[in-house]
Design a protein around this nucleic acid. Sequence first.
RNA 1: GGAGCGUUAGCUCAGCUGGGAGAGCACUUGCUUGACGUGUAAGGGGUCAUAGGUUCAAGUCCUAUACGCUCCACCA
Length: 883
Amino acid sequence: MSKELAKTYDPAGIEDRLYRKWMEKGYFHAEVNPDKKPFTIVMPPPNVTGQLHMGHALDETMQDILIRFKRMQGFEALWQPGTDHAAIATEVKVTEKLRSEGIDKNEIGREAFLEHAWAWKKEYGGKIINQLKKLGASADWDRERFTMDEGCSAAVQEVFIRLYEKGYIYKGSRIINWCPVCQTSISDAEVEHEDQNGFFWHINYPIVGEEGRFVEIATTRPETMLGDTAVAVNPEDERYKDLVGKMLELPLTGRTIPVIADAYVDREFGTGCVKITPAHDPNDFEVGKRHGLEEINILNDDATINSLGGKYAGMDRYEARKAIVADLEKLGLLVKVVPHSHSVGTHDRCGTTVEPMIKPQWFVRMDEMAKEAIKALDDGRLQFVPERFDKIYLHWLENIKDWCISRQLWWGHRIPAYYCEECGEMVVAKEKPKMCPRCRAEKLRQDEDTLDTWFSSALWPFSTLGWPEKTPEMEYFYPTDVLVTGYDIIFFWVIRMVFSALEQTGEVPFHHVLIHGLVRDELGRKMSKSLGNGIDPLEVIDQYGADALRLTLMTGNAPGNDMRFSWKKVEASRNFANKIWNASRFILMNLEGKECVRPDDLQDLCLEDKWILSHLNSVVREVTENMEKYELGIAVSKVYDFLWDEFCDWYIEIVKTRLWNYDENKKAGGEALWTLRTVLTEALKLLHPFMPFITEEIYCTLLPEEESIMIADWPVYRPEYDFPEAASAVDCMKEVVRGIRDSRISMQVPQNRKTNVFIVTSGEKDARMYEAVSPAFGNLAFAKEFHVQNDKTGIGTDAVSIVVSNAVVYLPLEDLVDREKETERLEKEKERLSKEIARCEGMLNNPGFVNKAPEQKVAAEKAKLEKYKEMREKVLAQLSHLA
RNA sequence: GGAGCGUUAGCUCAGCUGGGAGAGCACUUGCUUGACGUGUAAGGGGUCAUAGGUUCAAGUCCUAUACGCUCCACCA
């Protein structure tokens, strides 16, 4: 901030400069430091070639808030950043890019492709990191990691081999989800189920040797009949009991298949007869295993029918479907076609309908590790915020199936398994063995597959700290404290980190999981590329500043809940930034050539100073508590209210006269300045985690001797700032001022007309209090002079009266008093008080309340009743006076 | 088929462990006061989805119901 201050806050000119300063000073860097307690967050690594979206912005903002908070609290706060290689996502992008250049990935081969991929990573990898910096993320960039860097790759190998040796990783031919477009297997978590309107084709399978008798089956995927190896009925089903064991003619294939009995079949559903295709349906696969059925794979990897499909070979699956249905119809075997809505599995990356297929793949055995992960939650080592996500976590783990980790991709960690070209022996090892341990042949080739991208991110909390080496970082920063992520990623990542960490390190990877929701568009829709309704966080930053964006994302949102983004909200945030900017501008202007004075004894301060300090004190305490409990939205709104409503709208207004009169009374003016600066800087500290840039800019300008608010101490409750009497005096006076403002508006008193203000109290104590506190409110009360007294001398006849808790305030407005309006106003007040009295009496006349409620509550109600009764008496007196 | 979430002012949402309904935006009406009109002052607007229950006391706890949303699940 220069001497010539802009009237409005302009973030653009400030944010980059401050971020550079922080980087240069090394504030983001954390080191093993035995003198401090560690606090660690690992950043969910964004896709290396990704683009920052609102979801990231929310996620990173929350983490940045927590890490800045803890850093200020004196923790050695490490925010460990990095990026994810994002196997499929990146491979698809690189493949597309190559295709646009006329290059076919398969023609150039694995090595050349990987060169392109690394080049791509090099070119775009830094992009999202720079975008995070724009947000103000105070991550330790010196420690930036990448899931495919040397260390992370070593951790991946280590874990793979350990799990393999323990028997937790195995290779097997099992039914997996196959994406025909991406040409790779995918895990269950990557399959999205969506309901599609399709058909139920009812088909007759002729019974062998029984002319004219059929078994009617119903299917949603007729083309798979090419791979049928049985028809199943329920063993309890009387209708078909005689069929079991008979052979059926499988139309269009010339094969015959048996009728088997299996409890899996639901008698009520369809015809009660199910075609069994073990190679292309997970349930059928299980049935097939139970009955020793042949598994006939009828699909190529691109989901065309393979050579086993006879005349349909080479057709796409949907083409084949049409052709098969048509042929069945010609044969008179198509009974009927019924519209049917059913759930179809699609690949979450590309939307392609996945095909269940049997393929040799690598799996992680989940049962044992899942148990440990469940235990960690049960015994409290791991906690979700909010707690309701426990259930989602547990449900998934309790129903978990083995994890298919191999991918038919090139971009990723290659599986460390080697096969002997001679005898086929498999060796799992870090390095390619020189020779086959069985036949001593020297030709070995590595497994072609790579690992699921989540395999490496599952290790992220410890691989980034140097594991499997016993590094000082592991020792000091691990386990990490809190993981911040969206609920959509619990299955993919959180669970896998937990069981991996428990297995490899014996500890939970983090103690708390702070879950946030999705940022939706103004209409509540998910932001998505296809809808084109995404809002670019960088555009928001450009227009309104990172602080405004951050505040917007944190305001009015509870953990785990989705929120809607709207430009109106950003404007409100921007306005707040501008507000504190101007408050600071005001203070700076007043500081010019003047001195702040901190009295030796804070008891010497003016009442309003004591009031705002007390107020600050309680905000400090509450906000800190909220932060500790991850109630970030509540925390920031408290700071917001304090700064805007109490500090700006009341305190600054109250002390203005002291500032104008600085030359006459340097002590009062100087103390006001000291209080202004003290309260503002303390409040700025509370706000800093949320709005790092503007708070830094103001802080450093207000306190030129300070280097940065980032490294300032987090405010703590100070007993010496606690002035309960002063606080209540100012609160009383606020009530008086509000009453005066209200009356003046209803009497339409011109702004420039000042009046004497008579405060009539009934007790000596109140009188002294008002005598002490009122002078500071001259301007706010439009008062010529305050007269605190215990009777109505000197008030005159035509005065407006305002009844407050412990006094009656009179404004002798004479000619301006409209008796009718005044009566109306007082009547309204009387009514209000009567209602309150009725409420209090209702409670106090209730024996249940008096006997059972805590004493404190009862006493409080009694006091209220007394107060309201007194007030009503006064109102009634005024009314009778008017009449 | 399971599970979860939501239902509070015109709109978007807060409301922690039960003790007199809140914010922002929008709206109405004042304000060319020397920080800010991205401001300021005053104000209107809610039977906290419905029905029961627990309790002296329920937006808050419990049980149903309705509507909306989400996740999980192999119904061919």
